[in-house]
Amino acid sequence: MLMVTTPADPDDLMVKTRQEEVLRAMERYRPKGLVLDISGVETLDSFFARTVAETSRMVGLMGGRTVIAGMRPSVVIAATQLALTLGGILTALTVDRALDLLSAPPPRRRRA
């Protein structure tokens, strides 16, 4: 598994750089999945959401599955009011549950 954490207030360049690092790490370590721990994120705007959805599709093209873990309640509320979508990525309340999801066979549930 590849585990990525994101800073509280990432700027656009940091978000894009992190995306490239994830794809390079997919190639180098060949994990079965990616857990994106966003529990520290305080501001999730449209650019961040779009890049996360895009990264998940890219990881999918490389044969991996992505789970987003730990979205804060205040971020959930703001993201929903902003009508952000994450393109059907699997989500989990905690990193532990995200790891459980990824070690199970591909589920058909909890699509965001």
Binding site: E42, T43, D45, S46, P73, S74, V75, A78, Q81, L82
Partner: peptide, 29 residues
Amino acid sequence: RVVRDLVTRLSFGVTDVTRAVTGASELTR
């Protein structure tokens, strides 16, 4: 950062802080 500092100073609750910061982020974008 500026909006977060301001609304925190104004004692907004955590959800309203996030709403204000996210909204300001979108409008600046």
